[in-house]
Simulated assay, not measured.
Amino acid sequence: MTLKKRLTTAVAGALITGMVAFSSTAAAANWRYAHEEFEGDVQDVFAHKFKEYVEEHSDNTVQIFRFGELGESDDIMEQTQMGILQFVNQSPGFTGSLIPEAQIFFIPYLLPVDDDDIIDFFRTSKAINEMFPELYAEQGLELLKMYPEGEMVVTADTPVRSPEDFRGKNIRTMTNPLLSETYRAFGATPTPLPWGEVYGGLQTNIIQGQENPIFWIQSGGLYEVSPNLIFTGHGQFTTALMANQDFFNSLSADEQQLVRDASEYAFDYITEYVPGLSDEMLDKILEASPDVTVTRLTEEERQVFMDRAPRVEQRFIDMTGERGEALLEQFKADLEPYQSR
């Protein structure tokens, strides 16, 4: 067993002990909620708004764990499925290994990157609000909210304007087969790595680039070791709040509604918070480092990458079968109102 796993197991054991001790003493509960980001990042802001609502409207409390405090993404998902954590906020980039259909968010140029369009889509999409909950339920998870965190931006050791510019570059991806297919289509060599290895991998040239929303590039200091920012317009970073389904089903109807209302409250806040965040974080990056370059692909340059997207879409269908194909058809129907804008 690795040191990381031993530490994670020890922390999980301590949490279980706390749960047993607490459950026999009071009607009010302490709910444990883990996410994948740092203090002040989007998932952390969302978590604190969820906590704020729960604690203002009930005697329950919410304990938040940030990135690394209980391990990495796979660890907190495992702990949620075991019932050690009640809530987990995780990107489909990692959940995709558990729920293959969740990888649909990594088909390039499928989702709009305009802030107003993407928020409206997440509010109204039948695929997201009706079809996805059933898929998550099969894994013992109650899907509460999916929400966007911002446009995905690539950083690299040199500016990139074409698939030829990507050739020979190892681009870090999350452990997600479809995201790997995207970067193969773009001309790069996908290199799956856990987040904890990304900064060092860029610093030592094991990888020559990665993708993330701007706020994460800023808060993680990635621009320090990967200073060329490329806006390809290929997608939005999406994440999801889930609950352990056994836990959720054990709640009273009133408490279930409390959880749903808290999720909606946090969603409403974050959809006001995220627009404009990318520009703010980009300004901070440019102020912090004179070495940073910003490349925004022209429509013609972007079209070359868009022409390669259908092979990723086909790979998604091959991986997920009829269910994935039906989900993709619904996605496209849900997205149709935004195509002509």
Rank of each mutant, 00 (worst) to 15 (best):
E36N: 09
E325W: 04
S180D: 14
E224Q: 15
N212C: 02
E313Y: 02
Q63R: 13
E37L: 03
L141H: 04
P192D: 11
V274C: 05
G68I: 08
Y269F: 15
A262R: 01
R315W: 04
D117S: 13
Q103K: 06
A34R: 09
T271A: 04
I64W: 04
Q257S: 12
I270Y: 00
L178I: 05
G221D: 09
P133N: 10
T271F: 02
K4Q: 14
K126H: 13
N30H: 06
D117W: 08
I84Q: 06
M242S: 14
T17Y: 13
E36K: 09
G13Y: 11
S125V: 09
E151V: 05
T191E: 10
V198Y: 01
V113D: 06
P310G: 04
Y199N: 02
G187L: 02
I128L: 12
H48A: 01
L7F: 13
L144I: 12
G93T: 10
Y109Q: 03
M319P: 05
D246W: 02
F237C: 05
S226A: 14
A333E: 15
E72N: 14
E280M: 08
V113G: 00
E325Q: 14
Q314H: 04
Q236G: 00
G235D: 00
V312N: 02
G168I: 07
P112R: 03
E55R: 10
F122W: 06
L286I: 08
E280W: 03
F237V: 01
F87P: 07
D291H: 08
L241R: 00
G276Q: 07
G40Y: 07
E300M: 07
F267H: 11
Q203L: 13
A14I: 13
D114N: 15
E280G: 11
F46A: 01
L3F: 13
F122Y: 14
Y136R: 00
S125H: 11
G321I: 05
Y223W: 08
H48R: 14
S73H: 10
A156P: 00
V294E: 04
A333S: 13
S91L: 02
Y338F: 15
S97P: 00
H48Y: 12
E336V: 01
E52V: 01
T191H: 10
G93N: 12
Y199R: 04
T293Y: 06
P194H: 03
T124A: 13
L282W: 02
R123P: 05
L297E: 06
N244E: 12
I214G: 01
L15D: 03
S289D: 14
M77R: 11
G196V: 09
A12R: 14
I107M: 07
P213C: 06
A243Y: 07
E322R: 08
E313G: 00
Y147M: 07
Y136K: 04
S97I: 08
N170L: 09
R123H: 13
E287C: 03
K51F: 02
M152E: 10
E39F: 12
T320W: 00
